[in-house]
Structure formats: C-alpha cells, structure tokens
Design a protein around this nucleic acid. Structure first.
Lengths: 224, 224
DNA sequence: AGAATGCTTCGATGAAGGACGAACTATGCG
DNA sequence: CGCATAGTTCGTCCTTCATCGAAGCATTCT
C-alpha cells in the first residue's frame, strides 16, 4: 500500500457525472444554490443535496448561507485549477464529443471561466498580447514580458501578485482547443471589463455579452 | 445537461483507490509492469490487469511491450500535471493522514516525482534558488530570475523551453507540505544529478540515494 | 399564526463495477 | 518440446452508491 494524500477520495468526488457537472457549472465563478445546481446536473433536488454534502465534506466547496438560500461555490483557486487540469486531459484524450463547442453562440464568443474570460474573444486577446510581446508564451506556460508592468499599469491593473496564485496561466479553452489567459491577471482583466461596463454577464449563464461600444473599447484596448 | 469534455470519465478513472495507487506509483517516472503495479496497488494480478486496460482505454497510460514484459507509463506531462493537481487538493483539504510523510527515511530526503526531484533536498534547493533570486516565487508560481540563464548555463542546463511544458513550476511536496521545483528545469536538474552520478535511483523505489561525494557536490552547487 | 418556498434527511430500490479464482494465451528457456 | 513466467479473459459474487419519493426543518412572507 501507499501513503500520501488520499487522491482517490478527491478524484472519485469529481468522478460522478452529476457532481462533475456541478463543479463545471461552478467554474462560472458565481456561487449557485442547490436548486440551480440540481438543474445543471440534471438530477432531482434530494440527489443534488446529497452530492453537495459529499462535496462539502470533501472540502471542494464552500457554503454561504443567506437566509433561506444556500450558495455553494468552489473552495478556491486550487480546486479550480484541479478541475481545469482534469478538463484539459479530458479534452485532449477524450473521445471527441459530437458537438465541438458550446451550442450557444454567445457562449462561444465570450464566457466566464471561474474568474476570468474564456471564449473566442479571450483566445484572441491572449494571442494579441503574445504578439505584442506583452506576455511571453512557451506553449503551456505564460510569463510577463518586459513591457507587461507598464502596459497593464496604464489600464489600472497591477501585475504584482500578492495572492497565492500565479499571475498568469494558460487555461485550455475546450470550445476552440486553444488557450486563454487565467491567473490573477486574467481575473483582473475580467474585473475591468465588467467594471467599465464593456460587457455584462448573462443572468443564469456563463455567457458574457459585450455592448457595441464595449466591444469597440475592448478591441481597441486588447486587440489593437 | 452540460456539454464539453467528459471530465467525470477521467476523474472516475483516478477515483478508484487501486488505480490511484498505480498512477501515483507511475509518478516515479519509470514505466512499470503489470505485476509491479498490482503489488503497488495491493490487488491481485487479474484485478490490476482489468484496471490497467481501463486506464489505457481512458488514454491515461502508454504501453511499451518488450518480449513478455509490458511496461505501463503515464501518457505524458499533462496527465502527470493532473495527478499533481489532484494530489495538491487532496493534501490541502484531506483529513491529515496519520503518517505525515513517507515512512522510509531515504524517501523523505530525496525521491523522484515523475521526472524531477522531490523531498527535503529538493525543497531546500528551491528555497536556496529563490533566496539567491535565481528563481522568483510568487507563492505557487515560479519564474526565472535575471541571472537564471547564466546561472544554469554554467551547469550545462539550457533554460529555454522548447517542449510544450512550463520551464519551472511549483509541485507541492506532500511529505513536507512545501513546494519543490517541477517543469523542464526540474527535470533537467534531476538529469544532471543522475548523469554526474551524484546520486542513483534505488531499484524498485522512487528513492534517490546520494553518494557522500555526490551529496557534497549537490550542496556546493545548489545549496551554497 | 399559517402558508409557501428552499433545502435536507430518511428509506427503499436498483444498477454499476470492483474483487478474485480458474482457465486461457503468449513469450522465453533449457 | 515441455515447463515456467507474464499477462489477459471469463464468470461469479458482493459491496457500494446513485437515484427518487415522501416526510421533516428552517426561513420568509402575508
């Protein structure tokens, strides 16, 4: 027998389809109620409740009670990173699903992935930042370029990471099979997009909808 | 229902204790036979064989047949990264196991983790490289410092990553709850240690045993 | 207080899959 | 060729656990 952390326990929590769907839904970044997660997972409310208590016990979720609503969210970036890693493997080895990407066009263009932007817009943005050498990509790794600090400071974004997570990281975009920007920088950029009201989050969805002017501003800022 | 990669399929493969033990064993980096893996997992040979075919079908393993021996190995760095991510979550949220680290003293000091060095020596090395600002650590992220290229070039190690994986990455060391260096740089350093014969790999184990002179050389090189 | 909503617990059911022994195939060795 | 070793396949047993309906709490609204 082996020692060490009980990885089978954690993996089997993710290994149930209903729970996997819930966790994937929570990658949207916003905490959801038990009913919403039941709907996402396609199971009854009691079943969902049972799964949620298991995920809680496993330490994968946090719970915020607000009156009679109980909001479940991912326990932290480390958990989100694990889901990402598993998703990456599943996307690369998995038997390609029939539908190559999200059915919803808006989701394909731009959506939230835990705390950063994903979708075609996000992929284009990362490509452009790499072209401009603001960021440097070594395949799966992303580093800050020389001009990164000043470039982002001009947008009011501090690239110094104080949190215990990477500044920038590549996150595989399963809808287009390309990478987009995750990490604190990815999160900060999404914050800015929403703060400047360039885009809004679709209610009850991970889709991010750009306004006409917001789209222009975004493209001027990140795709120019 | 949701679309996207079938993450539950992959996670459930890792979610079985026997398979998890096999995968953990393969993090040692060397390919193992079905019998060895059966022993590691603590199951009978038929059971192990069944698990192995499932892991193969899931694309998590590669198989190299040599005569009547069949060597199973992890399918690639992406799979290893996923196991690492799950292990990290399990280590941080898991109910602390009774034994805080490997029972074997040699394993605690230095062992192989997929393709790089882990254990107390590896943790000390990373700490020292960060102290000397050869590497820069932002908690979980590790970047090359200004002097990294020249520092490692002097050791015959090229820090330019051409492979599709990060040059350096933090890998949580479950035996001491601290990080050590993974990525291509971590792999290159382990290569050098073995090439210079500073240490040898214990047969049928992940332990790395330093010779007296090798230990001196290693400490002079990386801990000075 | 009474009703409605949101969620959890309980109990029963059923299906999935992990376990091993025995038999079978394949490679290597003398 | 015959025996030993390495590994897979098959059949069967058995545990585990996902599922849902019904009932039980808790919170809020009127």
């Amino acid at each position: 027998m082996r020692e060490g952390p009980d990885i089978a326990r954690i993996a089997s929590l993710v290994g149930d389809p209903a729970r996997a769907n819930m966790l994937t839904a929570l990658m949207g970044g916003t905490a959801l109620t038990a009913s919403e997660l039941a709907l996402e997972a396609g199971v009854s409310l009691p079943t969902a409740s049972s799964h949620l208590s298991k995920l809680m016990e496993g330490g994968l979720l946090t719970l915020a009670s607000q009156g009679r609503h109980r909001y479940y969210g991912l326990a932290g970036p480390q958990v989100a990173g694990m889901i990402e890693a598993i998703t990456g493997v599943a996307a690369s080895v998995g038997p390609q699903r029939v539908r190559p990407g999200p059915r919803d066009a808006a989701m394909r263009v731009a959506r939230v992935c835990y705390d950063h932007l994903a979708g075609e817009q996000a992929v284009a943005m990362l490509d452009r930042l790499v072209d401009k050498k603001v960021l440097i990509r070594d395949d799966n790794e992303i580093r800050l370029g020389q001009s990164a600090a000043s470039h982002f400071a001009a947008l009011g974004i501090d690239v110094q990471s104080k949190a215990r997570r990477p500044v920038c990281r590549a996150c595989l975009d399963w809808s287009v099979r390309r990478s987009h920007l995750a990490g604190t920088l990815g999160a900060a950029i999404l914050d800015k997009i929403l703060l400047e009201k360039w885009a809004r989050r679709e209610k009850d969805s991970r889709a991010v909808i750009f306004s006409p002017l917001g789209k222009q501003a975004f493209e001027r800022t990140f795709l120019a």
